[in-house]
């Protein structure tokens, strides 16, 4: 589904260049549960950005469903992310001022869906996440675990092909962490492709394809 072919990412110009990724080769297939672990500054977030079409490689090729990303314009990339990719971040990135329901509706809204459909789907997914009684709460009123589950609901609401999670449990306590990691495992069992970025070995090991990244170089673990 996703293929990285000798992908490199270099920041800066001339004398102050930083090579975040060096010749990355990676294949992600449908149904995979991939984990990428590394320390801070290893390039794991940069890699996540590239996988998620948020950023493009400086060198090498990235193929999404066989289509090379450098042929796709900004607007279409937005559409691809909207339809096929679900993001879960460490700091949740919910929009304050909107309720849980409204946050989850957002991707459907940007995808041009009608009002009724948006609300129906968002409700369903929030109930799946056990947040049925919280849907009208402002996102700032939710607990950490609830926020993350809302964020996962938002990622899932468009039925994406792949779920990308960057340190999803970094801001959660151990109970919530276990719940969320269990959730990812469940989703993967039901067929969702999951890519997990983490620095915690325990959770990295829950995946069936494990990678390590250090100084921009990716290796199997």
């Amino acid at each position: 589904m996703i293929r990285l072919d000798n992908v490199s990412k270099i920041y800066g110009m001339n004398n102050t260049q930083v090579t975040a990724l060096k010749n990355i080769n990676l294949n992600i297939f449908e149904g995979d549960y991939v984990s990428i672990s590394g320390t801070s500054g290893s390039g794991k977030s940069t890699l996540m950005n590239i996988i998620g079409c948020l950023d493009s490689p400086t060198a090498g090729n990235y193929f999404f469903e066989g289509v090379p990303i450098n042929t796709i314009g900004q607007s279409e990339l937005s559409t691809i992310r909207n339809k096929y990719i679900g993001f879960v971040f460490q700091s949740f990135f919910l929009i304050p001022g909107l309720t849980a329901l409204e946050n989850v509706i957002l991707p459907l809204f940007y995808g041009g869906k009608g009002k009724k459909e948006c609300i129906k789907k968002a409700r369903e997914v929030l109930e799946l996440m056990d947040l049925g009684d919280r849907i009208h709460h402002d996102s700032t009123e939710l607990s950490g675990g609830q926020k993350q589950r809302t964020s996962i609901a938002r990622a899932l609401v468009t039925n994406p092909k792949i779920l990308l999670a960057d340190e999803p449990t970094g801001n959660l306590d151990s109970k919530n962490t276990r719940e969320i990691m269990g959730l990812f495992k469940d989703l993967n069992k039901k067929g969702m492709t999951v890519v997990l970025i983490t620095h915690d070995e325990r959770y990295a090991n829950m995946a069936n394809k494990r990678y390590k990244i250090e100084d921009g170089i990716l290796q199997e673990a």
């Binding site: 948020l54 607007s75 937005s78 909207n82 993001f87 971040f89 929009i95 304050p96 957002l106 940007y110």
Partner: peptide, 16 residues
Amino acid sequence: TSEIGIRKAIGAKNKD
């Protein structure tokens, strides 16, 4: 900026 970033990440286009 982070609000704008997440909106773009989940599918907002420039015109949105």
